[in-house]
Design a binder for these strands. Sequence first.
DNA 1: AAATCAGATGATAATAACTATCAAGTGATA
DNA 2: TATCACTTGATAGTTATTATCATCTGATTT
Lengths: 143, 143
Amino acid sequence: MTNSFDMLLDKARTSGIRLTPQRMELLRALSETTKHPTADDLYRHVKRILPSVTQATIHRNLQELVKAGLIATLERTGRPTQYDPTVDDHHHFVCRRCGRIFDVYLSHSEYRIDRRKSELGDASIDRFEIHFDGTCTDCLASR
Amino acid sequence: MTNSFDMLLDKARTSGIRLTPQRMELLRALSETTKHPTADDLYRHVKRILPSVTQATIHRNLQELVKAGLIATLERTGRPTQYDPTVDDHHHFVCRRCGRIFDVYLSHSEYRIDRRKSELGDASIDRFEIHFDGTCTDCLASR
DNA sequence: AAATCAGATGATAATAACTATCAAGTGATA
DNA sequence: TATCACTTGATAGTTATTATCATCTGATTT
């Protein structure tokens, strides 16, 4: 689910991570968006409240938050890492035209791996994430 | 399927892309591996045969080859782009322990999107790729 | 409430991967 | 074999991220 600010603070405390003002602002910013901001987006946001913050601090802290399981990341070709306040089981759709990302929730999924072609042996699979792409509603409408 | 060198040359010719020695060597290197080399891996490889080649040329050409549909890319968190000579419909498994990538083929798959939670509207989906992760056979054995 | 100190910060420099620019060179067609 | 649009190598620049380190500070202990 999407984490509220209070939930994130709780999680932060139980995970033992030290609660600095910089981290509080990051968590606040992340809890208030449904977008997938980059480190730089968040840097500019936090800088408005804590003008002396540096990009290094933002990067370091985002990585800490990911490590602590409070937020997730989303990686794309040639683009800066985006941070995702939603940590539950979901997937992503990327619009080929406008590049926007949409969260995707599945009500059902199943797959069968062709073990002969795949050379996976009996590897154990912990999780999977599906990356969809196509054209979003807005882009479909505007042409 | 995995492209052989001859198949790649054919595809290159029909796609109208100019066949320079640098591109030939890239195609040869890619056709001879089942791994997922980075631009730098390929640069070092091609440099052995064409010592004056530069990284810019490698990058430019890999992008041309991707654009022409001869090869595919694979993106991962904080790692350089990897190039994949296999362009047919397949997926990837990444081992959490050793980081190796394995191609995954599905004999069957289906999913149902929860449109209410997903805010996708009636976006049209062109394709999807599944990223699996877990522990590979070797890493399971070695502990 | 003050002392403690592991962990965090800001300043700064460095790195890695990629991209832009451009003069000179070259495949492929005519 | 002449032509020329496309490609190359050399080079510099960019962007996102990471490393280093002296100083500072949350949170636990006293």
